[in-house]
């Protein structure tokens, strides 16, 4: 059965990369329309490198994504840790409230955030974008990390305390290493959620802070250009290369 699962999961990975392969292939498509493949070109890549305005939106998205994901992961960690380790009152209410941004359609959150920001005289921009993205990434970051903490074996920390470790040392040496993968998972999920958000960004962006998905979404009306396939290709390749390099270095360290 485990072998069946393994094969199934390999297929799932293939499934995840099928459209990415299409994005890569069509980034070299000489035709401007996607239903036809008329030959190879690198034209879209040179277009992309000269499209300063598009690249500026990419930068905005990355800055906002990293900031929002860092804050959401950190707050989510503290929250999940507190809820798992301490008996605080009103946790059900608290968790319900944290879930609201997942439940309410984004346009409602966007509209209401815009009203709140404007009523306190805050001009929309990078800061409001980050705040808006924290709202939608916090539930993800919290739930992911809560899952990990709930599954931790309580005897671990008890054993450590019995051995005379202080709370902080138990946390750092015993608990945190076990939780680290979930922190990574929370960060990655938060980043990509922010990085691909359209609706919240619509209402919280300001002058000069158009994000990449916002720009792409608004250009639907005039048609997506293959230039965007080129951009997608580069983002994926770049991350893969970084991971590969880090992976190789780690293996060397282990072997040495």
């Amino acid at each position: 059965m485990d072998r069946v699962v393994a094969w199934f999961c390999r297929l799932v990975f293939v499934f995840l990369y099928v459209p990415i392969v299409a994005v890569v292939v069509y980034s070299f498509n000489a035709s401007e329309v996607s239903y036809r493949f008329t030959g190879l070109t690198t034209h879209w890549y040179s277009d992309l490198f000269h499209d300063d305005r598009l690249l500026a939106t990419l930068r905005t998205s990355i800055v906002v994504g990293v900031l929002a994901a860092l804050v959401a992961t950190a707050i989510g960690f503290l929250t999940a840790f507190s809820l798992a380790r301490f008996q605080v009152k009103g946790r059900a209410f608290f968790l319900g409230a944290i879930l609201i941004p997942l439940i309410v359609p984004e346009i409602v959150i966007g509209v209401s955030l815009l009203e709140v920001f404007s009523s306190i005289g805050m001009q929309t921009g990078i800061l409001t974008l980050v705040l808006g993205h924290i709202v939608i990434t916090l539930p993800l970051a919290t739930l992911v990390q809560m899952g990990a903490m709930a599954a931790l074996d309580p005897s671990l920390s008890e054993a450590a305390t019995d051995l005379g470790a202080t709370g902080w040392i138990t946390f750092r040496r015993v608990l945190f290493p076990l939780l680290r993968p979930s922190v990574l998972a929370a960060f990655l999920l938060s980043f990509t959620t922010s990085f691909s958000n359209i609706v919240i960004s619509t209402f919280t962006s300001g002058v000069g802070s158009t994000t990449l998905p916002l720009r792409i979404y608004s250009s639907l009306r005039t048609g997506l250009t293959p230039e965007l396939n080129a951009l997608g290709t580069l983002l994926v390749l770049f991350t893969l290369v970084v991971i590969f390099l880090v992976g190789v270095r780690q293996m060397r360290r282990i072997l040495a």
Binding site: F13, L16, P19, Y26, S196, P213, N229, G232, L235
Partner: peptide, 19 residues
């Protein structure tokens, strides 16, 4: 884990149009 998330670095609409 990274392999699961990397496809999502391409824009949502770009992925949707690929499908």
């Amino acid at each position: 884990l990274m392999l699961v998330i990397i496809p999502f670095l391409t824009d949502f609409l770009v992925r949707t149009f690929a499908w």
